[in-house]
Simulated scan of single mutants.
Amino acid sequence: MASVNVKDVARLAGVSIGTVSNVLNHPTKVSAETAVRVHDAIDKLGFVRNDAARQLRAGSSRALGLVILDARNPFFTELSRGAEDEAARAGLSVIIGNSDEASEREAAYLDLFEQQRLRGLLISPVGDVGPRLRRLRERGIRSVLVDRYSQDTSFSSVSVDDVAGGAMAVRHLIETGRRRIAFVGGSLAIRQVSDRLAGARAAVAERADATLESIEVSALTVHEGVAAARRLIDRPRGKRPDAVFAANDLLAIGLLQAFAASGEVSVPGDIALIGYDDIDFASASVVPLSSVRQPAALIGETAVRLMLAEAEDPTAKPQAVEYQPELVIRASSAG
């Protein structure tokens, strides 16, 4: 069956194509009677207008693209909500793409958003996307880095000082008497992970009797946290760390679940534990989880505001907004 177009609607309603366009886009320009005839024709024919094609002709879109690292992570859910709320206040919508920490999926979303000529792009990148974002800018699509700073300051960014956050977490563990500390994190290609590890190393370097072991996992998920915990449980008791700093709360929750299920490791008695992000589940876990809090919703809101500012003035210099993290101490590290 051939697709229904505006000409078909105009023919059935007995009006011009321009009148159909006015009913759809400028309804105050037509009489109520004419609008009813056009909408009756639309309903009868099952016409759906092609907004994408209309936006391509107009050279702009009412949507922003947002690429996040992991849609399962409540931190990014909250960040996305903040971006959506701020975009809605400006009459815009947000299309979300989940890279799942995979550069190929990230590239596919960038291709799609470029083809759709979205108003702008917010991205928490897997690796170095600078060259691709510069190409998008040449095509009129501005980009803002989210939960990540721009090293060469060529793009606006909204981030949290993750080096400070990592140091904050490990200093807390050291202050509670822990000395054999393990960092559990994903790929160091993810800037947030490498920065949190850098902060942890800086804190350990302040104490001659403290050590830091880095344990890399394949993803920042509960499942990988469980797997990392099992590797630690398999060690002789004297070879285990006495504290673990996890690169995010999902990993920390997986570690906590596996330690509890084993019956061999108590938290915080044997191993103190601290995560990062302070998602809602952190305070509700079996042992309430200490964590480094990030203002997730505020990050999303701020990124949209920077995007809109650049859209209004393309000659403006990129802005870098950096928020400070906050340590939230709960039972998992309080012993």
Rank of each mutant, 00 (worst) to 15 (best):
Q116N: 08
L121S: 12
D128K: 13
S156A: 10
S143I: 04
G97W: 00
G185N: 03
S150K: 06
G165I: 06
I17D: 15
S150W: 03
E301M: 09
E206S: 07
A284H: 13
T211F: 07
S266G: 14
V184N: 01
P131D: 13
V23F: 01
T176R: 15
R134Q: 12
A228H: 00
G335F: 08
A32M: 09
L145Y: 06
L56P: 09
L92Q: 05
L306E: 01
G14D: 05
S214I: 12
N25S: 13
P314C: 04
A189V: 13
G18M: 08
G199C: 02
G166R: 07
S262E: 09
V244M: 07
S218E: 04
T315H: 11
E206H: 04
S93R: 06
R54A: 12
E206K: 07
F155R: 10
A303W: 01
S60M: 06
I253D: 13
R305T: 14
L212T: 03
A205K: 15
D161T: 02
I141Y: 04
E322C: 11
I95P: 10
L110W: 05
S61E: 08
E175Y: 01
I253T: 03
A210K: 02
V226I: 15
R330V: 01
A208W: 07
E213Q: 14
V265K: 00
D8V: 03
L92N: 06
I215H: 06
H26N: 07
E264Y: 06
A210S: 12
A297V: 15
M168G: 04
V38E: 03
T19G: 02
F113P: 00
S103T: 11
T153W: 05
V126I: 08
R293Y: 02
N50F: 02
F75C: 09
F113Q: 06
L327A: 04
R89S: 10
R207S: 12
R137L: 09
R105Q: 15
A334K: 08
L298R: 14
Q151P: 07
A63V: 08
G65V: 00
R231L: 06
Q116M: 08
S283H: 11
G238R: 14
P74S: 03
Q151N: 10
A108W: 13
S60G: 03
R196W: 02
S194G: 12
A316C: 05
R81C: 10
R105S: 14
V67M: 07
R191T: 14
R240V: 04
A107R: 14
L273D: 09
R137H: 11
R105A: 12
L308I: 03
L110A: 11
F245G: 11
S154W: 05
V129E: 09
V20K: 06
A210F: 05
G254P: 01
N50W: 05
